[in-house]
Simulated assay, not measured.
Amino acid sequence: MWRNIASNAMTFLVVGVFLFGGLIIWAQKEYTSAGPLAQPICVEVPRGTNMTRVSENLAEQNAVSSAALFRMGADYAKKTQDLKAGSYLVPEGASMSEIVDIVTRGGASTCGTEVVYRIGVNAASVEVRELDPATGRYVELVKFDPEADEVPAEYTAVKAEGDTRFRILLAEGVTSWQVVNELGQIDVLEGTVDVPAEGSLAPDSYEVTVGATRASLIERMQSSQERILAEAWANRADNLPLNSPEEALILASIVEKETGVSSERPQVASVFINRLNTGMRLQTDPTVIYGITKGEGVLGRGLRQSELRGATPYNTYVIEGLPPTPIANPGRASIEAALNPAETDYIFFVADGTGGHAFAVTLDEHNRNVARWREIEAERANQ
C-alpha cells in the first residue's frame, strides 16, 4: 500500500515538475514574443508611480496580454524599481520585454506634448505640439510670436504639466545677440547672461527643463561649437589660406549668410577661398550689414552705396581679407564647407532666381549672370 502511495506521489511530483517547467517556458515566450498592440501608443509614466500602475495602464490599452506577467518579468529582470518618469512611444507589436526596457532605460521622452522655442534669423516663435503615435509625426496645437502675441491659454496649460518637454531650436545663421535676446523671452529659463562671442554657439536642438539657467544653456551651445570646429579643423583640406580655427569660423559664418541652399555651400566657400588665394577682396554684403547692425537685429532694407564705400572693419569691399570676427553662428555644414571647399575656379556668384546662385570664373560671365538676375528682379516687380 505504502509503495503505491509513494509511487503515485512520485508520479504527481514528476508531472508537477513538467507542468511547472512548461509554465515557465510559456511565460518566457509570452514575455518576449510580439505583443497584442495593433498600433503605436503613448504611455505616460508619472513621477512617483510604480510598476503595478504602469502594468495596469498597459493592460487597459491592450499593450500587454497580462499585467501580472509583465510585473513578474520586470521583477525577474530586476527592473521593477527602475521606472523613469516621462512619456514614451510604444511601437506596434512591442513585446513585454521591450516595453519594460522602454519605461526603465530613461533618457529623453519620446512621446506626448512638446514646447518648441524656435530662434530664427528673421523671427522667433513658440510652438506647442503633440506626437501622433499612429503616424509618428507631431501635430501643432498652437503657435505664437512671444514678443508680439498674447500668450495662449494652451501654452500656459501644457507648461504646467509634469511630462511636457521643452526644446530650443537654434537656426543656422543667427547672431549671438539674437540668441541672448530671445532666450530672455523664454519663461521656463532662469538667470541672465552676457552676449557671448559671435560664432561661438552651435545651431542645433537643445532640450531644457523648467528652471534651467540661460548661462548653462549658453555653455552647452559653446561646448558643442568647440567640438564641431575642432573636428572640422583636424580634417581640413590642405593648403587653405586660413591660419587658425578662428579664421575658419569667420569664413564659415560668411558662407552661412550667403546661401540657404545646403548643397551649394562648398561652391560658395570655394569662391571665397579662391579670392583669398589671389588677394582679391571678398566683397560680400552680409559682412557690410554686420558692420552696420553689429548683429543686433535685421537691417530690413537694402545697402546704400555710401555704406558699401564706408570704411568699417567689416566692409569687405574696402578691407583686405577676412573681417575681424564671425558675423553669425554658422552650423556644422558651413564650417565643414569652409574647411573642405569644392575644388573650383569660381571667383564670382550671384542669385539665379531659384534661391541658389549662378557661379562664374570670368568677369564677363559674371556680368551676364548679373544681367539675367536683374531681368528676373524686374519681372517679379511687374507681377
Rank of each mutant, 00 (worst) to 15 (best):
L183K: 05
A333G: 05
L131N: 09
A230N: 04
A311W: 12
L240H: 07
G35L: 02
V210H: 09
Q61R: 13
A38R: 09
E365F: 01
E379F: 09
Y206E: 13
A134E: 13
T312Y: 10
R165N: 06
D75T: 14
G120L: 02
F18P: 06
A342D: 09
D187P: 06
A74H: 08
E60L: 08
V268D: 04
V100P: 03
Q178I: 05
Q81V: 05
L201T: 03
P266S: 10
I102C: 05
A171L: 07
A230H: 01
T11N: 13
P286V: 03
G22P: 04
Y138M: 09
G106A: 09
R309L: 15
P203A: 10
S334R: 08
A108F: 08
E365W: 08
V121W: 01
A77R: 14
G16H: 12
L69D: 11
E114S: 13
S95Q: 10
Y31Q: 09
L201G: 01
T312M: 01
V350H: 02
A232P: 13
V188L: 11
R137V: 07
T156H: 06
M96D: 11
P323K: 00
Y155I: 00
I273H: 02
E190K: 05
A77I: 06
Q225E: 08
L170Y: 05
K257H: 02
E56D: 14
V298D: 14
A108N: 12
D352A: 10
Y88C: 02
V261L: 14
I25M: 15
V151G: 04
E190V: 12
A215P: 07
G162K: 11
G355C: 10
L308A: 05
V45F: 07
Y138F: 11
P133W: 03
T104A: 10
G300Y: 04
S33D: 09
G191Y: 15
D149V: 01
I335R: 06
D187E: 15
F18W: 12
R275H: 09
T278Q: 14
T80I: 06
P245M: 04
R129P: 01
N382I: 04
L282H: 05
G321D: 06
P91R: 11
A171N: 15
V180Q: 00
T344S: 07
V64Q: 11
V103Y: 14
T284K: 03
R332D: 09
W26G: 03
P241Q: 06
D204Y: 10
A202S: 15
R368L: 14
V139T: 10
G112P: 08
E130K: 15
F20N: 01
T362M: 08
D75K: 14
A38P: 04
Q305N: 13
I99Y: 14
R332G: 01
T104E: 15
D187C: 05
N274A: 01
R3Y: 12
E247I: 05
F18C: 15
L322F: 00
G310Q: 15
S87H: 10
N274C: 03
A248L: 05
G355M: 11
V126A: 09
E296V: 15
A74M: 15
I292H: 03
I218F: 13
S306Q: 12
N50Q: 15
D345Y: 00
E320I: 00
Y314Q: 00
Y317R: 00
E198P: 12
G279N: 06
P133R: 03
S244V: 03
R309S: 14
L131G: 01
P313G: 06
E56P: 02
P40R: 08
G321H: 04
M10G: 14
G353F: 07
E154N: 02
F349L: 02
E92D: 12
G136M: 03
A160K: 13
